[in-house]
Amino acid sequence: MHDVKRTGTHRMRWMLSLIFAFLMLPALVAAPAQATPSRSPKIPPVAVVWVQIEGADGTLFSGRVVTRTHDVTTESGGTRTCDGTNYDANPTPGPTVTGALDDAASANGFTWDGTHWAQFDDFFIETIKGESGSSNTYWSLWVNGEYLQVGGCQYQVRTGDTILFKMDSF
């Protein structure tokens, strides 16, 4: 067998090439994953939520609701988009608080009504199950124990959320 002697320069080049390949391997493997932009979790088009409606004298409805992304129609407000993209609140459509009320009403045989406020691109809920607000009461919206600072067509819900519609005083 022929014995080839390597000089110090050849050995050094060979070692540097080996180290370089070893260090670059993770970067090459990860490169395809980095080519795709990272995306925030997308809101699914359906959510299973708990809806509670508390009127002035007690509970009007309490139950599990399957809600989906959809337009909402009321007698006073007409048919409007209600998918969380209202007033540019979210970049993609998803199920909403008001959509959950609409689905609860449809599935359980009660009605609700609200006027559409163009300046907020949202509904102002006036009546649920025959109970209406007055000059000093209104339907407040809560999700997971927190009072909503946006409209019900702007806030997107996820499976497991608890939604409360509560008759409150001004």
Rank of each mutant, 00 (worst) to 15 (best):
T7D: 15
A21M: 12
S76P: 07
A118G: 10
V157I: 11
I125E: 07
D121P: 02
A47W: 01
Q34A: 11
G114K: 03
L18V: 11
W14G: 04
R39G: 00
P45T: 04
D71R: 06
T115N: 15
E126Q: 14
G160I: 04
K129W: 01
F110L: 08
I43N: 10
T115V: 15
T92M: 01
L60G: 00
F20I: 12
T111H: 14
G63E: 05
M15V: 13
T7S: 14
V29S: 01
V29L: 12
G63Q: 03
E146A: 13
P41W: 03
G160M: 07
G114F: 00
D113R: 01
A30M: 09
A104F: 03
L60F: 08
Y147V: 03
A105T: 12
I128Y: 03
E126D: 12
N90A: 01
Q52P: 02
P37R: 01
G151L: 01
F20Q: 01
V46G: 05
R80V: 08
V143H: 08
A118D: 14
A89P: 01
N90Y: 00
I163K: 10
E75L: 08
R68I: 01
E146D: 15
S169G: 11
S132Q: 13
W112D: 09
T79A: 10
K166G: 09
F124A: 14
W139C: 06
R80L: 00
A56Y: 08
N144C: 07
A21Q: 00
H116V: 10
P37W: 00
